[in-house]
Design a protein around this nucleic acid. Structure first.
Lengths: 114, 114
DNA sequence: CAACTTGACAACTAATTGGTTGATCAGTAC
DNA sequence: GTACTGATCAACCAATTAGTTGTCAAGTTG
């Protein structure tokens, strides 16, 4: 899978949209909690220490982006990860973070990056 | 590199921060243009059809996140990609987009996703 | 020196959005 | 049927931010 280059404008828009969905700590935490398995909205709200409405809103966004799946169970609604690739992305981000922080570190210690 | 689980709150914050920087079409386009090599701010502004101040602002953010490198050359300032991994991330996003769109497509055609 | 070029910063406006509050809808139990 | 629980929807407020305008700093040229 290769990205066309130059990136067409609408594609840049879609890519940014995707990143924007992930650009919110609460949503990262929600996804992280869903790693352990499907969760009802209320359960997530308890675990995350925020309101049910708030979690529902974020889940709606994640669902719209196709990152989570929804399933009605009784009168509860279970959400689960729909795209495991998200965590690969997070690891990628963490890798970038580490490189960046290492670079800043080297500025402090005065060493030259290898 | 494995992400700790559950993700500590500050890490979720940092991850989200990173995603947020990429969650803007103009910045995606800037990074894409930098793929062809270093660029001066004014040149980018021309290529992207926006103001020099706007590009400078976005580049400042990208630089703060360690995604681009800055180098003074004469009275121009050249920017270049500092973390090639960004494009891997974009490809990852595109992959997720394709999966999501394919799923939506199957809803329209009535087929069952394999 | 002055004139010009290039980029960065500050202040402002308009739009977006995270979170709250209150109402509404779907499903269960009685 | 009514009462209760759990989730979504709608309206609102506060905070963030993309983009513009104006100004300033650094560097070059004459």
């Amino acid at each position: 899978m290769a990205i066309p280059h130059p990136i067409p404008d609408p594609l840049a828009q879609m890519i940014a949209e995707r990143f924007k969905v992930l650009g919110e700590p609460m949503r990262i935490r929600i996804l992280d909690h869903l790693r352990d398995g499907p969760r009802a909205v209320g359960v997530l709200a308890d675990e995350l220490g925020t309101s049910q409405q708030n979690v529902s809103k974020h889940l709606g966004l994640l669902h719209g982006a196709g990152l989570v799946r929804r399933e009605r169970r009784g009168n509860a609604v279970l959400y689960e990860i729909a795209d495991q690739g998200v965590f690969d992305m997070c690891e990628h981000v963490c890798g970038g973070l580490e490189r960046h922080l290492a670079e800043l570190q080297s500025l402090v210690t005065g060493e030259v990056a290898p």
